[in-house]
Design a protein around this nucleic acid. Structure first.
Lengths: 126, 126
DNA sequence: CCGCATCCTTATAGATACTG
DNA sequence: CAGTATCTATAAGGATGCGG
């Protein structure tokens, strides 16, 4: 498939690249979608486990965004008939197709960790 | 530098990968940040040009998010002393360091364009 | 017209308590 | 354990105005 990012940087190509990103954000939209998907990239998890691994997420938001991810077929929800009931979440194959995106993002976040929060430090110093 | 995405998928490595993404989202947080940055990836633009290339963005949101991106040093704002005044926006070198992330995201959006909106179609059909 | 700023409404996120 | 219900707080969006 054609790679727009390797095409000449014309105005027309710009418009054609913005749309795919807008489309992607349609399913990734939501404050906690990416952290949730990344924890699941590392293996199947139960509701409580995901909550523990994402700092500051609330049960309500985790529940809500998991249901949206499930509706978009990125995440699979499996109920185990135990007492008490346990629910396991996993990435679908489609969900795993996002791996390169998350790896690029995590790599960037790690490389620029300090600079990311520089603006806030600058504000505090003033 | 170490690449977490190539490390064993232990619980501990998961926690260490979620944090960089959370950090990255700290500066990318906001509905229009990515579309704005991508239009600027394709060259310097004026306010009105950016607005034209991002479907449905309002002037108010564009103005607000551009100022946040500028505060975070991802975008540079240059005022040209013309009549009427023109303002040019460009990516900083730091801003361009996000290129691999956007390319990965745009590539994914293009490959999965149809499936992204499948869930919505399913709902309408019911 | 361009690049915003202000006011107001709507949508989304968070806090807390509670249940099968 | 895995969520829901209710309420409050914050963020996004629309309409309009304004100086240059």
């Amino acid at each position: 498939m054609e790679k727009l990012c390797e095409q000449p940087r014309t105005h027309s190509n710009c418009m054609r690249m913005v749309q795919p990103v807008t489309d992607a954000l349609y399913v990734l939209n939501g404050k906690w979608k990416l952290p949730i998907l990344i924890t699941l990239q590392f293996g199947n998890k139960r509701f409580g486990q995901i909550a523990k691994e994402i700092p500051k997420i609330t049960d309500r938001m985790l529940s809500k965004e998991l249901r949206e991810l499930e509706a978009n077929e990125l995440v699979k929800r499996t109920v185990h008939d135990t007492v008490p009931v346990t629910v396991e979440y996993s990435l679908t194959e489609y969900g795993h197709s996002l791996d390169p995106v998350f790896n690029a993002l995590a790599d960037w976040g790690m490389r620029h960790r300090e600079r990311i929060f520089q603006a806030e430090k600058d504000l505090v110093e003033k």
